[in-house]
Design a protein around this nucleic acid. Structure first.
Lengths: 290, 290
DNA sequence: TTATCGACATATGATTAAGATATGACCGTA
DNA sequence: TACGGTCATATCTTAATCATATGTCGATAA
């Protein structure tokens, strides 16, 4: 029993004539008769009663017809299912985020992506960079957004956005009067550091930035997971901190953001994925940032 | 795309290895690779990522797998569906009845048949013999139960049961004292006749029976559709009547049934069906009377 | 009755697809 | 560097499918 034989069967059942069905199927009548006869032989039952002027369905044929129709419908849809999944129009996308990356353009990108591909289920996971990369390799994540380019050959990456660092100050702070803050000025200030989680994260970026300018910060608070919390502590007057520019939308009135008075490398936000997959869903998600 | 290629795809997806899948499928590995490659080419998407130690499903493959499984399941069931219908285990059976035939063993037969083949939908239609045969030819009925053998070459028939005629009397009637009633005695009695509907039905049988014995009945009531009604009229003292033996279960206490004192041909209850069909469902229904 | 038409079945040769065997390329491991 | 495992490629053989031509049967009409 093949799909084609079922198609032949349905055609003959529709036309109630071998000759007419053969015309519809763009084939000669004898092979059609053969195929139907073969099908009947395989099934062990007659599907048609042959008459001199056309054919009629037997009980078995009547029972088989709707089943065959349903099957052929599903069968015809299979290529579509595969192609849609292959082109990334359906499926799932698990995005891993370094905590501080959950800001800036991400909400807008997510919104547009979900609008374009409503059949793709997007899930967000927030964790430390090392853990995210582990889950990426394990296949639990499809893409990781972090602040450093991929270091493993199995990973592909692309810079999604570049952000400058800014200094976050409480309003009324003496440095708030200046338009830009020299890094050296921070040495004399109480400083708030984010969570340190190994690899090249926000913590390491800031440490390196300060070290490059021979500044030793007076850390009064550290190991903060979320940028929101850091900004909150700044607003409360605990100290000041360095955050990505995109964080400056947080607590507009209560915290002052000032650029750093130095020529700095911008911080890249990098998407990392498995090269082995090259999932079109991932490609489309990355393309959304362009 | 063929069913076999889908089966191959599922096998490889299950084993996550071409070599292992080929073993399961009892075939060599190269043709399996070929078939999968062909399938991928047709669909326009890759289904597997080939690695040095096995393969993994792509997004398209993951999407296709459950669909293919479902399709194959239905596909495997198709022969069963056709065969069960072909053997008469499922389907429908439309039985046409001459009104007076709806008695005797029919309820028991119906009950047993429905017990044996619960998936066969049995419907009963009561009408005149001529109309029933017309509907039989039109395909609206599968079998007709009547009191005469088939007269058309397109029809097959079999006697399901033979019944003697008996006389139905009201209790206390003067003839009730006798063990058997001579037909001539009926000439002096008020007589109730069933509905006349052309063809060879109960009416014609009784008319012929009486004529054969030179009895002219005193018909006080006629055109009664149902035997139950006739028996009811007898019980009410309207008159007496001749009914098939099987009707003697009706109104046990209120009506007396007596055999006819004459050597009579028994009345055959005949099943009639289309020879062209030879439906197994019809065969099984007829066999139930054996 | 016989001729003819229409519809399905049978027969045979040509084309195409699917399978097996043998071999090659590539990666990881000892 | 050699070896084992896995998938890809090449070639041949076999089997299935299709088309053309022809046969059979029943219905219809002269």
């Amino acid at each position: 029993m093949t799909v084609r034989r079922l198609q032949y069967f349905v055609a003959v059942a529709d036309e109630l004539s071998f000759t007419a069905a053969a015309r519809v199927l763009h084939m000669a009548q004898p092979p059609l008769s053969m195929q139907i006869r073969e099908l009947e032989h395989e099934l062990g039952v007659d599907l048609f009663r042959r008459g001199p002027r056309g054919v009629a369905l037997t009980a078995a044929g009547q029972a088989l017809l709707p089943e065959a129709r349903q099957l052929l419908e599903r069968y015809d849809l299979l290529p579509l299912v595969a192609r849609r999944a292959g082109s990334g129009e359906v499926g799932r996308l698990a995005v891993g985020l370094v905590p501080s990356a959950a800001n800036g353009r991400l909400p807008g990108v997510l919104h547009r992506f979900r609008g374009k591909f409503p059949d793709v289920h997007v899930s967000l996971v927030e964790d430390r960079p090392a853990e995210l990369l582990r889950q990426l390799d394990a296949g639990h994540l499809d893409i990781v957004l972090q602040y450093s380019p991929p270091v493993r050959p199995a990973h592909g990456g692309r810079v999604l956005a570049e952000e400058a660092f800014v200094v976050a100050l409480p309003p009324g702070h003496r440095l708030a009067a200046r338009r830009s803050i020299p890094l050296q000025a921070l040495a004399e200030e109480p400083f708030i550091m984010p969570m340190r989680h190994g690899g090249e994260g926000l913590y390491e970026r800031i440490i390196k930035l300060l070290a490059d300018h021979q500044v030793v910060p007076d850390v009064v608070q550290s190991d903060i997971w979320l940028l929101q919390t850091i900004v909150g502590l700044v607003a409360a007057g605990v100290g000041l901190s360095i955050v990505p520019e995109s964080a400056s939308v947080i607590r507009g009135g209560e915290v002052i953001y000032r650029p750093i008075a130095a020529q700095l490398d911008p911080v890249p936000l990098v998407a990392v994925w498995r090269l082995a997959d090259e999932s079109p869903t991932v490609r489309r998600f990355v393309a959304e940032w362009a």
